[in-house]
Nucleic acid binder design. Structure first.
Lengths: 221, 221, 221, 221
DNA sequence: GATGAATGAGCCTTCATTCAT
DNA sequence: AATGAATGAAGGCTCATTCAT
């Protein structure tokens, strides 16, 4: 009975192509290997997202990735290892820096709406990953923690830092600020992912709804 | 590579009817269709919630319900039918009447907080159902529609009606009132279900966060 | 492991309605019982013939006979007992007397053709029974013996007796006469049953073929 | 109520590859697709013949063939596919050439008896196949057609060609020649297969009967 | 190292049989 | 006595995993 993170024999060491380039020895081979691993990860996330983890067969994944079924076990020690690798791959991937892309807005309200927009966008872009990981998070607390770190608290601190710049937030405790940041994330999750993806709502409509709720919140009673 | 969920394969102790669990005594089969159906539904939702739909076997469900496997097929025409029955059962069940249980508060603020509390509570109580249905909704658009009706717009109208009683809401359009209801519902879902259940956050802490956000809103930003 | 005939607990005693009429006690009840038994036998032979023994469910038989599934077990001690009962029922049934229906022909040739015609007819009429029993006979030697007694040697002796009347047969040994009788039966079986039923050949055509072969045989080389 | 066929449920001793039957030694799985396919076909025809198609389990077939159950589905797409494969295999197999094995006899009479002998022999050799296919033909018209082609008209043409060499047949029409061939085939089927296999008659006795009929025919009635 | 053929445990489902009503 | 609801053993089949090539 192994826990989520202690992947005993896993050789998942992401094996980035460029690290192979360092040594002149057989770079082709290593590039192939890394390419196949990526192909498997991509195939797996795509199939897990649209069929579900259990309903996807390793045969399908291998076929979709264009390589042999046995590689799933060699590289990732099985189907479940592939799922772990998907998560770790996402965790390892450089999180796109909010601050580098979105300059601070002029006012608290604008900033709030801007952050919401950013979240809506991110959630939509991550939808395949979320479709895979949410069902797992509902089953396995360990996965939930990872999701929490990666998916939810990801920008939380960054958002808190940004909000601190506004006078409206001066009077808020740190706890309240975190609550606020989480709320923005929640709006993003609910209207950027859940409604369009799970509930089949039109995405544009969901976005309007999100702004609607945000505006009510900002205007106050 | 073992399972994520450490209890995935744990034996379910057969829940034999009543206290006739004394060893050696065959449980004297009874004819109680309604009771068996309920037992199966209860066992199924419990197991689906903690192991996932696919990973739960009909054998386990029957054992947990204390009846024969064949009944799943007789009553619900199979495992999938059992899932549908769980959903329909929930849909059909008279939604516990908000108004009958929670008297209107004295002020808008108190009412708002009270409704939030109610939602947090409801989401927590429904957590098993949500754990089952959310993963399905991510795979099957049809299920998504049901979840939309049941899970999201459930109390929306009732909440709107209640809010109308307060002078603070007089100036709001119906759309805005619905936005307000959605706001409460989202807080309930996010902090009453998602955070404690999926992300493993302490429930009390999640509740505090929800109140923080509500208070900021009520106080005005 | 029980043999074919020792039906230990079977109460298959054909229970003819008229034997019930003898005693004035509850004749209705007994008629019902006998009627249900006959209905079950009829339903079973029909379904066994068109779906096969294994592919027919006791549920179907009961439904087709218009009575409860449990009766199959009460009356015939199960599905297999029903099959035995079908066979015994057929064995017990008074064999239609060849001599009473078909007067001796004027010549050997006419007699031969007349007997062939009779066999073709009998086989066709018995086709449902044959469809049931032949597959069983191929599996179980005991059934084969019954079939042999009932189906093949049935008229053999009668036929031999009739053939003895013709001068053409004077020179034949008893063994040869039996061979001849079996040959007539074989023609009947092949062209009266197997070809139309198993090989899907047009019945009229099969009959013509049979006569053709018979004529060649009679004409000699 | 036990089964008709006393050996119905007897365990089939797993026929592990070669003499590696020494206990404890895992049979060192080999890749020999063609051999495994043949082993499965052989096991299936044997078991189908003695237990019947429905009563034979895929588990038994695999055990008897000394390979894994899954292969039945991989190679033949299931139990039914295995049955079809048995039929196709038989159809495809080059019919042992009558002419290559049996030289034309000196006279018509000798040729007739020789052909009869050949048919009796062939039917006996094909008995397992016939035991499998006849019950199927009684259920499925499609199978009937195959049986018709393979089992009945198989040598008809070859026989007709051979008979043409004899002066006794000069005066016969083609139709009559085919009648003659059918006569021989029917004797072969009836006395070479049906009587010994289905009716449990001694094989030698059945053969004598067949010769009696043939001799009567040859001698002229 | 890569491949995919072979394995076999375990799944959902069917259905003859039992037995409470 | 008759019913049909409940039982549970056993079936065909799938598919993650192993391992000969």
């Amino acid at each position: 009975m192994k826990s989520f993170n202690q992947s005993r024999k896993s050789k998942i060491t992401p094996q980035h192509p460029r690290s192979a380039a360092r040594s002149g020895v057989r770079p082709k081979r290593r590039r192939d290997r890394a390419a196949k691993q990526q192909a498997l990860l991509a195939a797996a996330i795509k199939l897990f997202a649209c069929r579900g983890y259990e309903a996807t067969t390793t045969r399908e994944i291998a076929a979709c990735a264009g390589c042999a079924e046995g590689l799933i076990h060699r590289y990732f020690t099985g189907k479940e290892g592939l799922l772990l690798a998907i998560i770790q791959d996402r965790v390892a991937r450089e999180v796109v820096d909010l601050n580098a892309h979105v300059p601070l807005a002029q006012s608290f309200s604008l900033e709030f709406l801007q952050l919401l927009e950013w979240e809506l966008q991110r959630m939509w872009e991550d939808r395949d990953f979320l479709r895979v990981i949410i069902p797992r998070a509902l089953l396995d607390p360990e996965v939930g923690k990872v999701l929490s770190r990666v998916g939810t608290s990801r920008h939380a601190d960054a958002i808190v830092e940004r909000l601190k710049h506004f006078k409206e937030c001066r009077s808020l405790t740190l706890d309240e600020l975190h609550g606020l940041a989480r709320f923005i994330g929640l709006l993003g999750f609910g209207f950027g992912f859940l409604r369009p993806v799970a509930l089949g709502q039109d995405r544009a409509r969901a976005r309007v709804m999100a702004r609607h709720v945000a505006e009510i919140f900002l205007r106050g009673v």
